[in-house]
Write a protein that binds this DNA or RNA. Sequence first.
DNA 1: AATGAATGAGACTTCATTCAT
DNA 2: GATGAATGAAGTCTCATTCAT
Lengths: 191, 191, 191, 191
Amino acid sequence: MSKLEKRDEIVRAALELIAEHGFHGAPMALIAERAGVGAGTIYRYFENKDVLINEMYQELEEKIFPVITEGYGELKAFRERFLHLGTALLRYFIQNPLDFRYLEQFHNSPYGVATRRERLLGVREGCDVYFHLFEEGIAQQVLKDVPLPLLFALSFGPLLAAARDHILGFIELDDALIARTIEACWDAVKR
Amino acid sequence: MSKLEKRDEIVRAALELIAEHGFHGAPMALIAERAGVGAGTIYRYFENKDVLINEMYQELEEKIFPVITEGYGELKAFRERFLHLGTALLRYFIQNPLDFRYLEQFHNSPYGVATRRERLLGVREGCDVYFHLFEEGIAQQVLKDVPLPLLFALSFGPLLAAARDHILGFIELDDALIARTIEACWDAVKR
Amino acid sequence: MSKLEKRDEIVRAALELIAEHGFHGAPMALIAERAGVGAGTIYRYFENKDVLINEMYQELEEKIFPVITEGYGELKAFRERFLHLGTALLRYFIQNPLDFRYLEQFHNSPYGVATRRERLLGVREGCDVYFHLFEEGIAQQVLKDVPLPLLFALSFGPLLAAARDHILGFIELDDALIARTIEACWDAVKR
Amino acid sequence: MSKLEKRDEIVRAALELIAEHGFHGAPMALIAERAGVGAGTIYRYFENKDVLINEMYQELEEKIFPVITEGYGELKAFRERFLHLGTALLRYFIQNPLDFRYLEQFHNSPYGVATRRERLLGVREGCDVYFHLFEEGIAQQVLKDVPLPLLFALSFGPLLAAARDHILGFIELDDALIARTIEACWDAVKR
DNA sequence: AATGAATGAGACTTCATTCAT
DNA sequence: GATGAATGAAGTCTCATTCAT
């Protein structure tokens, strides 16, 4: 196993365990075992558990951003752009349930609190895109005239709830339902 | 302190600690201290920590239900009933931030997983009310024709996200904004 | 075992292990085992290992002071008082070799550094007695006119070295030799 | 870097770290880093950490001996010879505080115990010189008639204590004070 | 010969739970 | 019934040492 592969294995094992059992259910020894490395090895790649958890979060953000913004720049109409981002994000979560569960664990934990104070929604770069989009929407009087954070809540709230329900098996979101979900989000924020 | 008071003190102390610091930051010894009882005493009222946590959840549900359904029965129009429930729930969370934080901690933890499998949204009896309301809405073709769980996601998702942002201090939800928030939820689910 | 006895057993076990094998050779688990208590029990009496080590030091100081100052107040002549303190201290170390070894371990470790900055010699209250004695000696021109700390070095240096050699078995300090040792210390500091 | 230089760098790095932070604060990885070699490389020069520590001690002894005996052979008078050795040794410690700190760390640790059993004072070859000097002194009835080890304690005890206090900054030993210190040592041992 | 990544034993500490008082 | 001191399993992290490159 190469150095890079080892790091990846650690992150993969940690992602799995944390996504499935929470931070509590992911002791370093178990992460090491699942990654196929010694317990001490993790500390060659991450200073401590907190750093591991936070770096994993950063990496997820950086991984998600390009995926949801692919093809975004070419779109003109406001509504289309909104739908594009929402659809891409929901699709990403559905296709990467572990990533989604991890993000939820992170947000709902002391780890995520500091991060959350700075960034409203947890997908930072994507957040910036949304930020600009929403400001434009308010200016153009396309979106409801409410505080920006509320717009975030109105669009991400249902999206994340839907993703969660799909991943937990309560609903089966196919392409059609994904589209309808995002349209509902649009209904919630549009003027 | 009577037996009942003692139990209440334990629950109150646990709620405070868990809401503010998560399950991690609420060791039994600290709960006992804050409740003004001995550590062993907790185990006379709750078999173990898991039971305490789950019973607290049950109690919260039972506490919330009558609050949000007060005056509900007299309403006729579908939209009004939807708005009533949403407004009451959001108001409750804003006025009882500890309860809200606790529910969030619970949902986002292994404790909440099992519970969640059975009940879709975390407010069980309220859930039943919503359940009937939504089924009626679908039948009357007032609501979007999507799976029931998705309707839940579309209405509770934004509501909970808004409550969270208010409690964390990102927005200040006054009566006007509360109304607009719930109306946005309505926009999301209405046909 | 009563609460006080338990604390004493912990201190006794720690003293033994640290005196014989240094801080390194005294893991908390071993201290607990030798004290006949559970590993976690130590933490009910001492916040952590550092606190244990420092409190033990404090206690030793407080234990030694009354012993070496017993009968001290009645003495008049300067030389007699010096000899009294020195003899009593050396006797104490010889009779309590574990205490002596512990003090040496403590002084020669990061633990002792901070303490040492404040107090020159490690026997604080005894130190005060010595402090006054030495200042008087300088004022009366009985002692060599050198900086106070050097006087301490000249009297405690040989005393501690002799105690160490006795405890390690290199010499056998009987009453006669103890007397001659302390007289030699006197020769070193007297004008 | 040649083989010899590499070894020297390792010893130098270890000396620095151990003198300043004790054996605790000198992990092999850090020694290697400061020496500019790989961690594994140390083990090509020293079987393990214990061996490194003990060999360093040997080397220090061998380094100190010629320094303190320089010009010693030409002296005739007993007192002069005693003062010469003491002054040279104290000077050496003051000019090489790392060496001094290392020796103290070594003596006050399990590492030093075994060594100490064999040699009385820690400066082996110098020890021999002292050994002969002291035996001569006893025979000539110039020194106090006490066991040899006690003579060592009486002369090295204050010397080392003074050196320590100087290095820790409690006193400032200039040439005059060095002379007076050694004379005080002489007072302690002379008949 | 040199490296330094990997290892895992072992250190300190926390905390849910028990049980003698 | 209530207590809270005691417990020890389990968690995080360090570091001397090895070994494939």
